[in-house]
Design a protein around this nucleic acid. Sequence first.
DNA 1: GTCTATAGACAGATAGAC
DNA 2: GTCTATCTGTCTATAGAC
Lengths: 192, 192
Amino acid sequence: MARKSGSSSEKTRPLVRAAALRLFAQGGYAAVSMRQIAAEVGVQAGALYRYTPDKQSLLFELMRVHMEELLVAWAEAAPQGTPLERLDAFVRFHIHHHMDRAEAVFISYMELRNLTPENFAVIEGMRAQYERVLEDILTDCGADTDGKLTTLAVLAMLTGVNTWYREGGRLDRAAVADSYVGLVRRLVSATA
Amino acid sequence: MARKSGSSSEKTRPLVRAAALRLFAQGGYAAVSMRQIAAEVGVQAGALYRYTPDKQSLLFELMRVHMEELLVAWAEAAPQGTPLERLDAFVRFHIHHHMDRAEAVFISYMELRNLTPENFAVIEGMRAQYERVLEDILTDCGADTDGKLTTLAVLAMLTGVNTWYREGGRLDRAAVADSYVGLVRRLVSATA
DNA sequence: GTCTATAGACAGATAGAC
DNA sequence: GTCTATCTGTCTATAGAC
């Protein structure tokens, strides 16, 4: 039997996550205090410890969930077709998924060094899994480039979009994705 | 008439910069204390304030000097030749210059948000100047891609090398540069 | 030029009332 | 589940001795 809706635990928990996400992205993990997060949520600092054992776990959970969502979203998209079609699909998927989660993406790149070694290893493993997705596609494309190097080059290029793309700018989401599909196709084409 | 060599000011100053560079790159500006920097130098915290008015100025100077060195180094390289030759030269220059300054590069990307607005504007202006260098080369190459977007895509790709390149790894510096020259040439080639 | 000592603010985390 | 209050430690920056 469900509880009466009086408890605000299931309301406050996501608020804590959202506040931490925003503030960590804005000011950096080390520069943001638990008191700032609490103020953003509208509670006192002590109340946060109902939802996280400590500040480190708060950061780790944000990054872990972000990476998990990324891997699950790709698995669910699961595009079929020729290798080049799957490459196009990956480029569009990566750009759109990352545009929609700018803060989580930012944190997941910038705050790696603020993870404990154990937590870092977990995130790195998930990142390696995602890199593998693109590497396999590139292998299937049969490009005559260095597979690992090209994988990292393409991912850096695609993720770099987040550093400059702003909604309402000169190019809309679809135009950006189209442009990068073109760029990546050239990258894997035979040498001119 | 030169002073006797007794003063250690001109010895300590670069030590402070070097310690700050290393520690900021390793732990992040906000997470590193003046005491840690002092310990690395081998003095007490108070002594640091002979060399910087405050912690913020220390960060800003590291980034400003890094950007200035980058612009000066390119100006001195000043490669001539066809647009495509200059593009190749830019790719090699960027990769080698950045490989040699991994810590300063890292800081200059990661710590932008820890600059005061005034200091941020200065660094952003210098970054825009550098982007303009590549944008002009790409324009001269006459690629039929979006010039600004391609500029940012290539820069993200090239700077991304620093996130994975390690001396003594599978590929040496020259091999990495060669590979990226190939990738960038494809990017600006006619569509396959 | 570097030291010791300290001012004054703020950090993460916990205890116990309600 | 959130509050207030607090413990314990650290921070940047400064003052004044040497």
